[in-house]
Design a protein around this nucleic acid. Structure first.
Lengths: 211, 211
DNA sequence: TGTACATCAGTGAACGCGCGTTCACTGATGTAC
DNA sequence: TGTACATCAGTGAACGCGCGTTCACTGATGTAC
């Protein structure tokens, strides 16, 4: 029996986005065809272009959704960590540990960073998409920088570092760690890098002297 | 006057590779067409397929060359650094500084990491290409790990870290830092991450107490 | 409650273009005798 | 020194396929009167 489910546009749309996300992270945007997406979702070409006026608009929607989710995840994470601990440094260290654990528990090796993926296929996209990508990165920086300012008030840094750079470092290690994990097929590498970063942050604010 | 230069196959071949390298780093492999490469180099389609039996073979040659060059660069770098300094830790710290300076001096924002680029278009390539990619990463690890072992003999670590992970961290920061630099169009970010890594390494082996 | 119209979420066929690949042929250079 | 042949480094035309995009049409649902 051919099931005649009610057509809800938003469901189809997210279906396309879901399918596109995994495909793009696997093969890159250029190698992900609309054909392949619509057969997976179960619509026709026309249906796709009803939701997205062209392929570039798909990229934009994909990236926007990705950034929004990431944002949500971090807000959540810090809330949970600060609940357990009211000191800003120790809350941050807990959050990093939670983050590492989340990464380790993912069923498939790589969560894959769309920002990086888009970055390496730069010229394919419109300005808007590239700008969106930058917004994502700078969001990370602001988020962690404000946290470090709070921490530095209570714990004067023992190593002289630029706090923006220290904030960027986590983004760099996330992107780089994902690459390491993907290429070597060893999914422990990403969480290991988060934990190393944690050691560094602790050394910056608490020093290395035995307590 | 139509210049009739002598045809030297190896020159054409490296010409193709050069052109491919910049194009792939800009747009990704899938979006780089053979057509575009041959018009840049000045040969015809047949000429291309004389040198590479298919597009995948181009990818392999590209990656191999990239890894070889990187290797050469590091051997050179360490040799120079150790010439100035015979202590393994301080030699390493000098090498990191030289590396950061090299990155800062590059005319165009991003050197771009082919390993990462290939990584994000995984499924396009044959097994051989993907394996080659892993070899590149593990090469970094071995290189730095042996160096850290040497250092640790003389400077017992003040922070308990896995030295393989510490070695991986530089690869992660290189890849991640390139992404940060490309996306934000701020080429200072990459060298800044190398310098931060340097601070961390120093803290690991020397501690944070004022000397 | 019934009818008219508008909107939503698609269908399905057609399009032209550019892509990777093949292949028969060629003209210059190198080597053997 | 001259000739025969082989190899190198391509040319140039043709191929079929799949891609992104367009567009006229449709069938179900929602809303107004």
């Amino acid at each position: 029996m051919t099931e005649t489910r009610p057509r809800r546009g938003s469901e189809t749309r997210t279906g396309i986005l879901d399918q596109a996300e995994t495909a793009v992270l696997e093969k890159g945007f250029a190698a992900t065809s609309i054909e392949e997406l619509i057969t997976a979702v179960g619509i026709t070409k026309g249906g796709f272009f009803y939701h997205f006026k062209d392929k570039s608009e798909l990229a934009q929607a994909l990236l926007q959704r990705y950034i929004d989710r990431e944002n949500e995840l971090f807000v959540d994470l810090f809330a949970r960590a600060d609940e357990l601990n009211e000191d800003p440094l120790h809350g941050f260290l807990v959050a990093l540990k939670l983050l590492a654990e989340m990464m380790a528990d993912l069923p498939n090796a790589h969560p894959g960073c769309l920002v990086a993926s888009v970055c390496y296929q730069d010229q394919l996209f419109k300005r808007e998409v590239r700008d969106l990508n930058a917004v994502g990165i700078l969001g990370w920086r602001r988020r962690f920088r404000t946290r470090f300012d709070l921490i530095a008030e209570r714990y004067p840094p023992r190593i002289e570092v630029d706090l923006d750079h220290l904030a960027d470092m986590l983004a760099a290690l996330a992107d780089g760690g994902i690459i390491l994990s993907k290429v070597t097929k060893d999914k422990t590498l990403l969480p290991a890098q988060f934990m190393l970063y944690r050691d560094f942050v602790r050394a910056v604010f608490l020093g290395t002297d035995p307590t």
